[in-house]
Every structure is written in structure tokens, then in C-alpha cells.
């Protein structure tokens, strides 16, 4: 919860996170905070309107970008990254019903929904959405642009690369290491270490993975010659 008395915050985006913040403003900032809203009609408009929306924000206003729905993490970046590149100030929105240990590290544009718990020395990157009732255990690390589903948990010392999607009620066990760009959407415990671009879904059964440049090989890597 932000305690800056004359704070001005602009909420940009669409989807459930946007709606839930807009419906509960007092739970995120003091009552005298001045709120501005930039709702976006459709996820397909993000790219084309990013510049004009960001230019319309008055000096001294901090931003929070909330986009979810289809392609949630990547779509949110279409506003988040240009805002960051312009050096615009961004806030974290932590619901007053969430519980965060004082020694955690948070990037910017982090949402912590009601009932979520972030335990001691956890490290959360930029642009991470932590949904209601989720739990981040001691010393867990979550990379940038992550999505932690409702009721999900990340066990102590577990680490998640950037752009990971952890679905609702997924429980990543302590010390598990998850690469970047992974999606685990199979409710229940998960303790397997997985490499970049791995997907585990209830409806797929078998883990799937991204193959190609940057995942299973690197063009720039001069792998040791057999010659």
C-alpha cells in the first residue's frame, strides 16, 4: 500500500487485473491519492495507441500498467516497455489485504492482489502480476513479466525465469528451477526443474517445449568443434 499523500497514479490497460484495481482503489493507496484512468478498448489496440496514451500522461503522475486476457504477458509489455523506455515513473500496487515481508525486493509495475503473501527475502522482477491468494515463499525469485495465478504458490528458493506463467492453484515446490518463457497450468504440485520454453498443461498431459533459436541452440554460440 502506497502512503505518499499527494500521489497521482494513472491506471492503464484492460482485463481482470485492471477491473479489480479500479473497483478497489482505496485498498491500494491513501484516500487522497489522485487517480487517472486510461482504459484501452481492445487488446489489439495496445500497440498502435501506446505512444499517444503515454504522451497524454501529465508530469508527476506515476503509472501502473494492467493488461491481461489472451497473450497476457506479452500484450502488457506493449505498454510497459515503451513506458519504461521513456523513463516514466511506475508504481507497484499492493492490496492492503496482501501481506509482504519488509525485506522483499520488488521491481516496478508489480501487482500484489488481495490475500497474496510474499515471504522474507523474496525477489520479484518488473511487471509481475501476483494474483489474489498467491503465495511467494522465502527467497523465491521471480523474473520480469511474470504471471502468478490465483491461489498459486512458489516455494522457498525456487526460481522462475522471465515471462513465466504459473496458472491458478499451481504449487511450485521449494528449490525448483523454471527457465524463462515457461507455462505451468496444471493445478497441483510441480517439482520438476524445466528448461526455457517448457509448457505443462492439464489439457496436454505431456510437457511441451519451445524449440529453435535461443531455446535448443544458439546461432551465435560457436559450439566446440568436433573437428
Amino acid at each position: 500500500m502506497s502512503h505518499n499523500p499527494n500521489q497521482k497514479i494513472c491506471l492503464i490497460g484492460l482485463g481482470q487485473v485492471y477491473e479489480s484495481i479500479a473497483a478497489d482503489l482505496h485498498a491500494y493507496a491513501s484516500p487522497d491519492t489522485h487517480w487517472l484512468f486510461r482504459p484501452i478498448g481492445h487488446v489489439g489496440l495496445l500497440e498502435s495507441c501506446a505512444d499517444s496514451v503515454l504522451s497524454s500522461i501529465p508530469q508527476g503522475v506515476s503509472l501502473f500498467v494492467a493488461v491481461d486476457g489472451i497473450a497476457l504477458n506479452y500484450a502488457r509489455m506493449e505498454i510497459f516497455v515503451p513506458a519504461q523506455e521513456r523513463g516514466l515513473p511506475m508504481v507497484n500496487l499492493i492490496h492492503k489485504g496482501a501481506c509482504c515481508s519488509p525485506d522483499i525486493q520488488l521491481g516496478c509495475n508489480v501487482w500484489v492482489g488481495p490475500g497474496a503473501v510474499i515471504d522474507y527475502q523474496a525477489e520479484i522482477g518488473d511487471n509481475v502480476m501476483i494474483n489474489p491468494m498467491a503465495r511467494i515463499d522465502p527467497q523465491a525469485r521471480i523474473g520480469n513479466h511474470g504471471w502468478i495465478g490465483r491461489g498459486a504458490s512458489v516455494g522457498s528458493c525456487a526460481s522462475l525465469g522471465s515471462n513465466c506463467i504459473i496458472g491458478d492453484d499451481v504449487h511450485i515446490k521449494a528449490y525448483t528451477s523454471i527457465g524463462k518463457q515457461c507455462a505451468i497450468a496444471q493445478p497441483g504440485p510441480w517439482s520438476q526443474n524445466i528448461t526455457d520454453g517448457t509448457f505443462a498443461e492439464k489439457s496436454i498431459w505431456a510437457p511441451s517445449r519451445v524449440i529453435g533459436e535461443g531455446y535448443t541452440f544458439n546461432t551465435s554460440c560457436h559450439a566446440e568443434e568436433s573437428a
Partner: peptide
């Protein structure tokens, strides 16, 4: 054996996000 190749895109964020292919995979399995 299901392989869903990406398509070349001109959006910086979409390009970095092979994770978007997940929606094709889910549609196929559905």
C-alpha cells in the same frame, strides 16, 4: 508428435514471445 511452428512477426514483444505459441498448441489439443 505435435509441432507448431511460429510465423515471422514484426512486433518486438510478440517476436520475443515464443510462449504465444502455446495458444496454437492448446487449440490443437482441444
Amino acid at each position: 508428435r505435435l509441432t507448431c511452428p511460429s510465423v515471422t512477426v514484426d512486433n518486438e514483444y510478440a517476436k520475443r514471445h515464443a510462449a504465444n505459441l502455446r495458444s496454437v498448441l492448446l487449440g490443437e489439443y482441444r
